[in-house]
Amino acid sequence: MPLAAAGIGAAGSILGGITGGKASSAAARAQAQAQQAAIGEQRNEFNTIQANNQPYMQAGTSSLASMLNLLGLGAGGATGQQGAIDALKASPTFTALDQTGTDAILQNAAATGGLRGGNTQSSLYNNRSNLLASVIQQQLGNLGGLVNVGQAGASGTNAAATNTGSAISSILTQGGNTASSGILGGANAFQNTLNSLSQIAGKYFNPQPTLQLPPQISANGFGNTAATGIW
């Protein structure tokens, strides 16, 4: 009977330890999978934000380069600046405004009889010069607006990157804690199994001695051989 009881106890302890260890490992794996899914979702969200901001960032980058060239601060220096000004002069906007101003000056000169006068030539020169300065300023303003748009897009992407990094770091920390808990849970289950087996083995191989009380002495002097108890 003691051997059977010990076997049953040992089997129960082993089964409990194995079951507990597997449960801890399974829970840790499930949690790790959930955390990897969360990390993937965080990265997807960041990629979406980055893709949405990319056109604005590209526009801002290109506009900044054009602005620097127009100001003579680009990589091409004065040569780049002259190229930017020449491009403005050849633009449809400048060409249309220049033609409109020229037509107005010539019509006014013809009406007043001063078509061949020096004032007409001076007016045409000043009109073109003032128009170029105005178009340059307008172009700088337009480029500056696009640079601001690009900067806002870059700031949004940077903020998203920071938030994503923080979220993923937090998830990875939780994953480390979960893995540690799973390992410790399995180790504790195994240790409890060993402790239970040790206790069972100790009871089986080192049983406590059972002592019989000395026989009682009856009134007639003969001993009563029935045991009265256990020490």
Rank of each mutant, 00 (worst) to 15 (best):
T79F: 14
L70I: 13
Q54M: 11
S122P: 02
N130K: 06
G101P: 02
T120M: 08
F46E: 03
Q31T: 15
G20H: 01
T102E: 13
S66W: 00
A133L: 13
T157Y: 00
F94C: 10
T61F: 06
L71K: 07
D86P: 00
Q36G: 02
A28E: 13
S91C: 14
Q36D: 15
A109M: 03
G83K: 02
T100C: 01
Q107A: 15
A78S: 07
S91M: 11
G72H: 09
E41H: 07
L88C: 09
N127W: 14
L115T: 04
L70W: 09
N53Y: 02
Y56V: 08
S155R: 03
G74Q: 02
S24F: 00
T48M: 06
G72N: 12
S123R: 04
S91E: 12
Q35E: 14
A37F: 15
L131T: 03
L143Q: 09
N130R: 06
G118Q: 10
G80L: 05
S123I: 06
G60A: 09
A26Q: 07
Y125V: 15
Q50C: 02
G144N: 09
K89S: 01
G40E: 15
K89C: 00
A87L: 09
D98W: 05
T48C: 00
G156R: 03
L140H: 06
L124D: 05
G118K: 05
G113C: 06
Q81W: 13
R116C: 13
Y56K: 05
Q82G: 14
S63H: 09
N69K: 09
T48R: 03
Q42E: 14
S66I: 00
A133C: 00
Q35P: 00
R128I: 01
N44C: 08
I136W: 08
T48V: 07
G153R: 02
I85P: 04
Q42T: 12
G80M: 04
A65I: 06
G60Q: 05
A111R: 02
Q35R: 05
A75L: 08
Q81M: 14
N69V: 04
T120D: 07
N127A: 13
L132K: 03
Q137S: 15
I39S: 01
S122L: 11
L88E: 01
L106I: 10
A84M: 11
N47I: 01
L73Y: 11
I39T: 12
S129Y: 12
P55C: 14
Q99W: 01
F94S: 03
G153H: 05
N126I: 15
G77S: 04
N47L: 15
V147I: 12
N142D: 15
G118E: 11
G141R: 03
N47E: 15
N44W: 02
N52F: 03
A37P: 12
I136N: 08
P92M: 09
N52R: 05
T102M: 09
Q33G: 06
M67C: 12
Q35S: 13
G74C: 05
G118M: 11
A34W: 04
G144F: 10
Q139L: 05
G72C: 11
A90W: 01
A159I: 07
T120N: 06
G144W: 07
V147Q: 06
M67L: 13
L68V: 08
I39Y: 03
G21M: 11
M67P: 13
K22E: 15
L140M: 08
